[in-house]
Nucleic acid binder design. Structure first.
Lengths: 178, 178
DNA sequence: CATGTCATGTAAGTGGTTACATGATTTT
DNA sequence: AAAATCATGTAACCACTTACATGACATG
């Protein structure tokens, strides 16, 4: 709630000027396991943020008619204020768990395929994050290196947990144990 | 997306007739760590589900003017069909991680309090789930006992992971190590 | 007799996705 | 020449929360 999209944009712009397209792509790679935004959210938001003076158009390149934005003083202060507000309690929805909960009505084989899919997805996510972690070492002089590492660590640990849970599920519900 | 609220309601009604109020309360306790619904969502949904014949009014008690609903054949089949559809990829948003990521702008002490809060919240959730698990043993003859246990196990494991991550964060960012 | 919980519902607003529309540039 | 990607944006819709309104019953 409360337009957090604004603050993601502000946060990313602290590192340099970016276009709407670049912002979306950055969120997709860096925050992939705990955040997402769509173009239909970003472009109108950029527009209203300009109107409110939080950001300003930095340049409009003729080549690809790309519009880059940069952070203003007002935006910078807004970001700092937001960082001082306690984060809201997360609420997420896991359809898989719902299906398992009501799964006594369903074919156990079908449920197994869902869990297998879940495992595969999170395993590949895990590999990706581990790859990011390795890539991060050379740039450990960057000022937010520690924070990025901690966020990555969160993702790695949770994905590991998901994979382990899925493996335990598949083991406990296998045919062999009938 | 795609009106999953419907299916949560259907799933709960398989165990017996329930009122909107009871449905909301049940979701709040049973699915607390992976699902939530508000009254503003449930009551209008119940209404439209009656119109479509998925559920029907079972009884209207005079005492507390409570309206109970029960599952129809159509609703039952709709639930079974939904269970055959692969669950959508979950997308959740963790404001805390965003704040840590951009946290080099903020006071480290403030971030610590967020993580401490996060740890405390998930520790108490963990205790609650462990309590539920203990309570579950006596009713292990129920037909969906295995599934409930697996869902609970998911919650326990993820909360443990959250708590461990928070502890590692707090250790790694403590004053003593300066 | 006040507070809390039970109980139902609506209205307004926010947040977010999806589909569509357009067109340039780059790669195969 | 076609396909992929870069790039921006809008409109329609869907999902969801919050605040409000109402009132019965139960407990201290």
């Amino acid at each position: 709630m409360k337009q957090k999209t604004r603050y993601v944009i502000l946060g990313l712009l602290t590192e340099g000027d970016l276009s709407g397209y670049q912002i979306q792509k950055l969120i997709q790679v860096r925050f992939r396991f705990f955040w997402n935004e769509s173009y239909g959210q970003i472009y109108p938001m950029l527009k209203s943020m300009v109107e409110e003076g939080w950001i300003a158009i930095a340049s409009t390149e003729k080549v690809r008619k790309q519009v880059k934005y940069h952070l203003t003083e007002i935006g910078s202060r807004a970001l700092d204020l937001w960082l001082l507000e306690a984060p809201e309690k997360e609420s997420f929805r896991l359809e898989l768990l719902l299906k398992i909960y009501f799964g006594n009505r369903a074919d156990p084989e079908v449920l197994r395929t869902y869990v297998e899919r879940f495992k595969a997805d999170h395993l590949s996510e895990l590999h990706l994050l581990e790859h990011f972690k390795k890539e991060l070492w050379p740039i450990r002089e960057s000022d937010n290196h520690r924070q990025i590492l901690q966020v990555l660590e969160f993702g790695i640990k949770t994905h590991q947990t998901y994979v382990e849970w899925a493996e335990a599920y598949l083991k406990g519900n296998s045919h062999d144990l009938d």
